[in-house]
Write a protein that binds this DNA or RNA. Structure first.
Lengths: 117, 117
DNA sequence: CACACACTTAACCTAGAGGTTAAGTGTGTG
DNA sequence: CACACACTTAACCTCTAGGTTAAGTGTGTG
């Protein structure tokens, strides 16, 4: 279970929705207000509000209230966490050492010599 | 909408579930049969079967039938796609050029000079 | 050929995601 | 002080994810 914290789970959940991924991309350019994001994504305010709560719970965005408008900014730490997770599959990125063909051949070879359950 | 294909959406959906992420991690070590994965994750066969269909639709695993057992192997291409997506946020990985504080300061400064909608 | 094994499919259930409309709460503005 | 603006919350609806049990389909084995 190493390398898969509860943290990471909320990040994947957050990114599983295309609206939230696009919000992340918009915020990567510069901070935006909630209504601006709603307009950019053609969503109602209650709808975008729910998405933003999910992103906040994953600690992917930070909020600051200026007067009556809420400004949101991207938090990059969870994205770095995500990258770390992906990189665990790197060691033999290109080499398909554990591909199906290789393994099938391996199975056939061992089946000839050993014969346990 | 550049950089967010339909492909990618199914990959994120697939990885939003902890069972499926763990299956990916098990397959990164070596290919496994369906019943083996069910046992490893303490899931019933119908349950793991559904998860595997999701992973197949995201093209993250490949299947080969040997006799009556199904052997699954990891496909790394979607993981590379995922990594590419994450890396688009890299340019100023560490520098928080578009952080909330920076932007708030910027807003205050411009508000003094220009005064449009 | 009978039976066990390794799934697969069908039918069903429940909780939650993601949207809606409508009403409520602060906060600037004329 | 009235009113508009920028959310926020509540109540509701629908669809689907993720599990269950039970029955069905190939495929080796004695």
């Amino acid at each position: 279970m190493v390398g898969d914290k509860h943290d990471l789970s909320s990040v994947f959940d957050a990114l599983a929705n295309v609206h939230r991924r696009e919000v992340i991309r918009y915020l990567a350019i510069r901070p935006r207000s909630i209504s601006e994001l709603a307009r950019l994504r053609s969503l109602s305010l209650p709808a975008i509000h729910k998405h933003i709560r999910v992103l906040e719970e994953a600690a992917m965005v930070k909020r600051r209230k200026i007067g009556r408008t809420n400004i949101l900014a991207l938090e990059r730490a969870p994205l770095r966490l995500l990258q770390t997770w992906v990189e665990q599959f790197h060691p033999y990125w290109g080499s398909e050492a554990e591909s199906l063909e290789t393994y099938a051949t391996y199975l056939n070879k061992t089946r000839e010599t050993e014969e346990s359950s």
